[in-house]
Simulated scan of single mutants.
Amino acid sequence: ATLLALLSFWVMPLSLHLLWLPLFSALFMLVPGVIAALTFARRHRDPLSRGAYYMSAMLTNIGTIAGLSAFILYDETGFAYVQIVSSFQVGLLVLVCFPLAAMFHEQGTATKHHHRLTVRELFLTPNQVPVLGLIAGLALNVLGVERPAVFGAAFQSLVHIGAWSALFPVGCLVDFSRARPYIKATADLIPLRFLLTPLIFFGLCRLLFDDPVLIGSVLLIAAAPTAINAVLTARLYKLNVDLTVASFLVTTVLYLLIFYPLFFLYVHRGGTF
């Protein structure tokens, strides 16, 4: 993750036209998190389940599913838009979601461990190391240091390694029998993921952009299903892993079988944004 952050930020286009996308990267995480906080998350009284629910709502599969979806519809331009947003997700994951997950873990185990986390324990841990890659890559970019071509090939390899290293533990964690009871508990993520969040970002896009490819790519990101990282974060901080697995399965299946096919047909039949 550290190397991917360094290499991607090193060559990220920094034109004024794209400066909105880093802000959107944060909003893609914060908007569903705020909606969840005001509505659906309240019914999860156990802090470990509530924390897992927040991870399921906030962490979405931008880099893989949304990226491939945009590539199929809009070729490299759409894929590039998604990757710009995805690049900032590494930093947001470790700066926002990891501390939030640690806080819910602390609340959920308070009866067993009477220890209050300090700021240093929340933000200065080995889990935050990818931020160093983000900062280093951005610095090289701003300084105008050209990235050697060999690193481009290395980046492609690291993407595959990163995907396998993420998918392997998720495969080990997916237990259908344990996740099945939580499917109903994640049902309210369906309108959150596929209706409320896309509608909010559609309104923002109409105010800011006139490029239908950019707007379509943003909508694909806004509706992306729960990410593998939600499962990994729940596992890392000992939250309710089964709830995140249920959310991962339900939202991914609905995205692939219903949302994306309808979106695809709309665009290919001349629909525009």
Rank of each mutant, 00 (worst) to 15 (best):
A223Y: 05
A5W: 06
R50Q: 15
L117K: 12
L3W: 10
L195S: 06
S69V: 01
V129Q: 07
T233H: 04
P169S: 07
L195Y: 02
V82D: 01
V241I: 13
D46F: 07
G33W: 00
L257V: 14
P198N: 07
M12E: 03
S25H: 11
D242A: 14
P148V: 08
Y182C: 04
T77P: 00
T233F: 02
F176H: 10
T125Q: 15
S157N: 12
T233R: 00
A179H: 07
T233S: 10
Y54K: 08
W164N: 06
M58I: 11
E106W: 08
L199F: 04
I200T: 09
L134Y: 06
L6Y: 08
G144T: 09
R43N: 08
F263D: 03
L219F: 10
I65L: 15
G137A: 09
G162C: 09
S8A: 12
P169R: 07
A223L: 00
S25Y: 11
A70V: 12
M12N: 02
D211G: 07
L243T: 03
P130G: 09
R116S: 11
C205N: 02
A70G: 07
G216Y: 04
T118Y: 03
A37G: 00
G144E: 12
A224Q: 09
L100N: 00
L232T: 03
P47R: 04
R206P: 00
F155S: 11
V174R: 01
N229L: 14
V241C: 00
P212W: 13
A153V: 06
L92F: 14
L214Q: 07
L14Q: 08
N61I: 01
Q89D: 06
L95S: 14
L21V: 01
C97S: 13
L236G: 06
P169K: 04
V250M: 12
G63I: 05
A26R: 01
F123W: 14
S25I: 06
M103V: 15
H113D: 10
T226H: 07
V213M: 03
G91P: 11
